[in-house]
């Protein structure tokens, strides 16, 4: 009986000890993990989380030219934003712009990557050329396109005139300007996308192709059944990054059109810039920035939820 009772007493004691040790171990692991994360947490807090919180705070205020808050207005900045025809137009242009640039950039880059993946003599030269736009800054590329788009002296219009067509007001006609910015952006993004996709292609195991060859598979069959599925993680990465980049386009707009003509290229990031640093309305600029954050968050979330199902990881 007494033996029994001691046994009963002892069992919970050792259990408690075991729990405690486990807890202690977890705490230790946790603090060790935090220690490793600390540098990035500090950096993120200073450069991302604090500005994010500050932006949300600012979006409920009106401000003076120095950005100091003056009047608390609650949701008014958001209400004004959603009822402003300029902002709604800017949202529409942004989505159109994403639609114009993302698929075309990826299709062209994928095509270039597939042909540059062939083992030919001097292929290094072509790979360098195809990825070369990566080495050009947004400002330099924009100035170059500004010249190409010049209404009377630009090569594009001279070419059109030479074949008897009338010149296009690339950057001055509201129905063409967004298109012109999209062309510029596609051209600039091809280098980066091409390089990533080519890297993805190179890492596909060649034994897959070899066995397909033995089975007598054709070129396009291999492309559809081996290349694209094996490339899907890379493609998924590229699509996500390109969409985020397209939403954040700024440099080429500032140099080529400054949001004009008739606000047709006033994409959302440029609109934020203009509200904050031309109109000195940091409140409504912050409200727009918060909305952009939510949109990109949603888009990325949806992509991971639905797009990733089709991704085949090795």
């Amino acid at each position: 009986m007494s033996m029994n009772s001691t046994a009963i007493q002892q069992t919970p004691k050792s259990q408690i000890n075991f729990e405690q040790v486990k807890k202690k171990q977890r705490m230790k692991n946790f603090s060790k993990g935090m220690l490793f994360l600390l540098p990035s947490i500090v950096l993120f807090s200073v450069f991302l989380f604090y500005p994010l919180a500050r932006t949300i705070y600012l979006s409920f205020f009106l401000t003076d030219a120095a950005g100091a808050t003056t009047v608390f207005v609650g949701w008014e900045n958001y209400v004004t934003m959603f009822t402003s025809p300029i902002f709604l137009q800017s949202m529409k242009s942004t989505f159109l712009f994403v639609l114009y640039t993302v698929p075309i950039t990826i299709i062209i880059s994928l095509f270039l990557a597939v042909i540059a993946n062939e083992k030919l003599k001097g292929i290094g030269f072509f790979r360098t050329i195809y990825s070369s736009t990566m080495g050009i800054s947004v400002a330099a590329a924009s100035v170059f396109w500004l010249y190409l788009f010049h209404p009377s002296m630009g090569p594009l219009n001279l070419l059109l005139n030479a074949i008897g067509a009338e010149g296009i007001g690339w950057l001055t006609d509201p129905s063409w300007a967004l298109f012109a910015i999209a062309i510029t952006t596609i051209w600039m993004n091809i280098g980066f996308t091409f390089l990533i996709l080519l890297g993805g292609l190179q890492s596909i195991d060649s034994s897959l192709y070899e066995s397909a060859d033995i089975d007598g598979a054709g070129y396009f069959y291999k492309l559809r059944r081996i290349t694209i599925p094996m490339l899907s993680p890379t493609l998924f990465f590229v699509v996500t990054v390109t969409i985020i980049n397209a939403f954040q386009t700024f440099g080429q707009i500032d140099i080529l059109t400054q949001g004009g003509p008739v606000n047709s290229t006033n994409l959302v990031v440029y609109s934020i810039y203009r509200e904050a640093f031309v109109n000195y309305k940091f409140g409504s600029a912050s409200a727009q920035a918060v909305l952009l954050f939510i949109i990109i968050l949603l888009m990325t979330f949806l992509q991971f939820k639905f797009g990733e199902r089709k991704v085949h990881y090795q």
Partner: peptide, 19 residues
């Protein structure tokens, strides 16, 4: 009327080129 939009530099170069 020649439309150079908001771009003053393009306008000046158009003028210098006789457009």
């Amino acid at each position: 009327f020649a439309n150079y939009g908001t771009n003053g530099d393009n306008m000046v170069s158009g003028f210098l080129a006789g457009d």
